[in-house]
Design a protein around this nucleic acid. Structure first.
Lengths: 244, 244
DNA sequence: GGTGCGGTGCTTGTATGATAACCGGAAGAC
DNA sequence: GTCTTCCGGTTATCATACAAGCACCGCACC
C-alpha cells in the first residue's frame, strides 16, 4: 500500500517534531538554554516523561545537549555530523540526481582504486566479478555479487569515507534498483554480457593502475546501468563542450 | 581541549550503546523481536525508564521500531537513511580523504552547474565572488563569502542532493579549515589574488556552459586550496596515465 | 571589607508504581 | 465451523519521589 495506516501518533514524536522545528526556526538561539522539562511539560500539557523522550530524540539528532543540574541547550552547530537523504525520491528526477552523486563519488573511487589498489584489493574485485558470473549462470539474481563488486572497488581506493558513503548511497538505492530491475528486462542476455564487460573494464584499468581509464570505465558502467534501469540521464556529464 | 572532561556516563547512553552494538553484531536478527522492556530492565539492572530512553535513541537511529502491544523489533535495514562522518578526522590523512570526497562531488557540481545554471544562479556566484573580494579588501576573514561561493555553485547544479551533501561536508570541514587557516599564512597577497582568479575561472566556465572546464577549474581550485592549507595531496587525481 | 563556606532552590537523571491503548490468541457462544 | 468476546502480555503515558549536579546567595570568619 502506498500510504501506511495512520500510525498511532505518539505524543513524544509530536513534541519532538514541534521542538525540533522551533529550534530550526530559530525560536531558540544557538547555545541558548531551553525551558526546563517541567515547564515544557506544562506548556505542552504532557507528562515530563514525554518531554524526556522527545529530548532524547533531539539529543540523538544532535540538536540539543543536556547537562544535569543546568538544563538543555541548543547545540551551536545543529546536527552537522549527520547527513540524511531526505525522501528516497521516488520521482525519476530525484533518482537521476542521486545517481549523479553516485557517479561522481564512485568515479573518484575507481580512479583512486587504480592508484592505491594492492594485489589483495584487486583480487577481491576479480572475485566479485567471478561470483556475479556464477550467480547469473546459476539463474540467481546477482544483486549481492554486484553490490560486492562496487564495494570492493570502493575499498580498493583506501579511502574510508568514499567507501562508507558509497555503502550508504547503495543501501538507499538498493530497493529502488530492485524495483526497477523487476520492471525492466535486466536479465536479457545482452545485458548480462554487457555488465560483465563493463565490470571487467573497470577491473582491468584498476589492475593496470590507470586512474583515468578506471574512472571512465566506472562512469560508463553506471551510465549504462542507469539506462538499463530506465532512468536515462538527460545530460551526459562527459559531454565535451566546444572550445571557443 | 583535546579530551573533553569525562562526562557523566549516563546509564541510558550506556544501555543504548550496548543494545546498539548487540544489534549490529547480529545478536538480534533483522525483524526479530527484542526482549520486553521489563525483561531488559532486569537484565541490565536498571529501571524501565532507562531502557525506554535507550530505545528512544535506537529508534531515532532507525535501528529498531516499536509497536504498542507488540514489542520492539530490529529494523530490516538498519539506519540506512543516516550517514555520519565518523570523527572529524584530525589526522592529515583523514582530512585528505575527506577532501578527495569533496573534490569528487564539488567537481561534479561545477560540471552540472555549467549545464543547468540559469542567469540567476550565475549572478549568485558572481555576487559571492564580489563579496569575497570586498571582505578581503576590508581586512575581513572572508570565510563566509567563500562558503557562499561554493554553495552558489552547488545550487546552480540544480541537484538538491549535491547541494545538501556539500553543505554537510562544508560544515564538517569548516572548523578544521579555520584552524589550518590560522596556522598558515593564507592571507598572503599572492594567495588572495590566486583564490580570486580560481573562483573567476569557475564562474567563467559555468557562465560559458562549459562543463568540462568548470569541473577542471573547480578541481584545480580545491587542489590549490588544499595545498594552501598545508594538506597537500600525495596523488593528483587528474594525473594522466600513459596509455600502453 | 573581603573571602570561604554551606545552604537552598533549581535542574536533569533515575526509580517505582499505576493506568490506558493495543495486539494476538484462546476460550466460549452460536 | 465461524464469529465474538475475553484475557494476558506489551508498549505508551502519567504521576510521584528521590538522587545528583550546578549556580547563586547569604552568613560566618578573618
Amino acid at each position: 500500500m502506498v500510504t501506511s495506516i495512520a500510525r498511532a501518533p505518539r505524543l513524544s514524536d509530536e513534541v519532538a517534531a514541534r521542538l525540533g522545528d522551533a529550534i530550526r526556526a530559530g525560536v531558540f538561539a544557538a547555545g541558548q538554554r531551553l525551558p526546563s522539562e517541567k515547564e515544557l511539560s506544562e506548556r505542552f500539557a504532557v507528562s515530563r516523561m514525554v518531554i524526556r523522550e522527545a529530548m532524547s530524540r533531539l539529543k540523538s539528532e544532535e540538536l540539543v545537549e543536556t547537562r544535569q543540574g543546568l538544563g538543555a541547550f541548543v547545540k551551536t552547530d545543529p546536527g552537522k555530523a549527520l547527513y540524511r537523504l531526505g525522501e528516497p525520491a521516488l520521482s525519476p528526477a530525484g533518482l537521476r540526481h542521486i545517481f549523479q552523486l553516485r557517479v561522481a563519488v564512485e568515479g573518484a573511487a575507481a580512479s583512486l582504486a587504480a592508484v592505491h589498489a594492492d594485489a589483495q584489493a584487486i583480487a577481491a574485485i576479480a572475485q566479485a566479478i567471478a561470483d556475479l558470473r556464477a550467480d547469473l549462470e546459476a539463474g540467481q539474481d546477482g544483486a549481492e555479487a554486484d553490490r560486492r563488486f562496487h564495494q570492493a572497488v570502493a575499498a580498493a581506493s583506501k579511502n574510508p569515507y568514499l567507501e562508507s558513503f558509497l555503502a550508504f548511497l547503495g543501501a538507499n538505492l538498493r530497493e529502488v534498483i530492485a524495483l526497477a530491475r523487476a520492471n525492466t528486462r535486466e536479465r536479457h542476455p545482452d545485458h548480462i554480457a554487457a555488465v560483465q564487460l563493463e565490470h571487467e573494464a573497470v577491473l582491468e584499468a584498476v589492475a593496470a593502475h590507470a586512474p583515468q581509464r578506471a574512472e571512465s570505465a566506472m562512469r560508463a558502467h553506471l551510465s549504462r546501468a542507469q539506462e538499463r534501469l530506465g532512468l536515462g540521464q538527460r545530460h551526459r556529464i562527459s559531454d565535451r563542450e566546444s572550445v571557443p
